[in-house]
Design a protein around this nucleic acid. Sequence first.
DNA 1: ACCATTTGAGACATTAATGTCGCAAAAGAG
DNA 2: CTCTTTTGCGACATTAATGTCTCAAATGGT
Lengths: 186, 186
Amino acid sequence: MAVTADQIVTAAIHHLNEHPTASMAELAEAAGVSRATLHRHFSSRDDLLAALGRRALERWQQAQDAVGLTAAAQESDGDRLRDTLRELLTALVEVADEHGFALTDHAMGVNPDLLHRSDELEEREIALFAAAQRAGVLRADLPVRWISNTWYGLLVAVRESLRRGDVARRDVAGLLVDTFFEGTGS
Amino acid sequence: MAVTADQIVTAAIHHLNEHPTASMAELAEAAGVSRATLHRHFSSRDDLLAALGRRALERWQQAQDAVGLTAAAQESDGDRLRDTLRELLTALVEVADEHGFALTDHAMGVNPDLLHRSDELEEREIALFAAAQRAGVLRADLPVRWISNTWYGLLVAVRESLRRGDVARRDVAGLLVDTFFEGTGS
DNA sequence: ACCATTTGAGACATTAATGTCGCAAAAGAG
DNA sequence: CTCTTTTGCGACATTAATGTCTCAAATGGT
């Protein structure tokens, strides 16, 4: 098989990141595949979009697993919690940049399965935030879900910064971590 | 005239905030108007979308003007700059909530006129951020455009928080200002 | 009550994307 | 080399939304 389904998904994500309204024909071309072959792999557009969503969630979960999120959420040591947050944020930079369009796209919010998995991953992070609050690493006076949405919003800022070339790729993780913890005031 | 163009724009914004892919027929219904009448006011879908964009930019500019952004950007007094930032952020909560879908929608990024006006408004804020950096109100070690994107990202967080009911409407401005300046770390 | 204007309803043509199919060419396994 | 599978290409039907048009109803001002 010259081009696998995974490769099509990758190409589609890359293309949709720059052309969010691309048609199936465009996505086929971007993957270097005919429209018929694209339909052989993904029977419908929704099917393809769902695969993109699954890929994004998969990467997100991998980032969580790589830093041992679940174990860390049981942690009470502040320094280790802070490190976990830092590492996770750094790992999520790549996810946000690579799968960014899934971050804001509307087509994602209609698939109950994806929505459910997304909620689960979010809850895992929220558990980490709550642990960090208990350990005094994150402010306890902020609603934990506000922290979660802040976290998400800053990833949108990352994506936008990279897309527009506002900051160098090698600097962005540091800025993100720094801003998340310290804010912009001096 | 029972229903004005402005009222249609208002209804369309409200509807699109919850149903981002709504058709012209849906938008007509949401405005309590026939499809024909909708087309009498806005000859095409792009025309309507452009009107929504103009409305959003208008509100954004009003928020800037209301706090005297241009004058403040010439300011060197830290306390006053901080106040201006606070007031602007507070005013933008409403804009983000009301015109939020324009914040992330792709249809907006293709109209050169809107894009140009949007860049102008953004540059005005960047001038304010730069003044705040010089006055020691905002950290000078952060790229000013990163601050701008952070600002934007936090407004996305506001919109999301309100949409999901994660935080009370009366609390959100305070959380936003607080998080912007101080971050989430303790 | 009368007239001018606006509206709603429905029909219509157009357009663009989607998904299906068949067949010939190409690729790959043995 | 041969046979099997996969691919590309083009044609096709379907669908959904868009934008235009006409005409009768109703709205509103005087």
